[in-house]
């Protein structure tokens, strides 16, 4: 795992979130550290879609207790989670 991979993941995630969720909120300038739930970008079903996408896109298996704010609450959090999980597998 290296920084280039992280940047790739970050770009992919942002594109996914922009295409699927952010267009509903044109007033929001989303930063990578922003709280996706608190800003109302994603709701509970949005997170289900996002977790499915992360599993499919990066070939990861996400356990029940891993679907938390710490791991999925922001773009930064997801990038770190993907990076950690990949390095374990």
């Amino acid at each position: 795992m290296n920084e280039a991979d992280d940047a790739d993941v970050r770009r992919g995630l942002r594109a996914f979130i922009e295409d699927n969720f952010l267009y509903l909120r044109p007033d929001v300038e989303l930063a990578d550290g922003d709280d996706l739930l608190a800003l109302g970008i994603l709701d509970s079903l949005g997170f289900v879609e996002l977790v499915e996408e992360v599993q499919a896109r990066y070939g990861l298996s996400v356990d029940d207790v891993e679907i938390t704010e710490e791991n999925f609450g922001s773009i930064d959090a997801i990038v770190a989670f993907v990076s950690r999980t990949r390095s374990k597998e």
């Binding site: 709701d43 997170f47 679907i67």
Partner: peptide, 8 residues
């Protein structure tokens, strides 16, 4: 939103 939290 975060079912992991609910399980915990």
């Amino acid at each position: 939103a975060f079912p992991g939290r609910v399980v915990q």
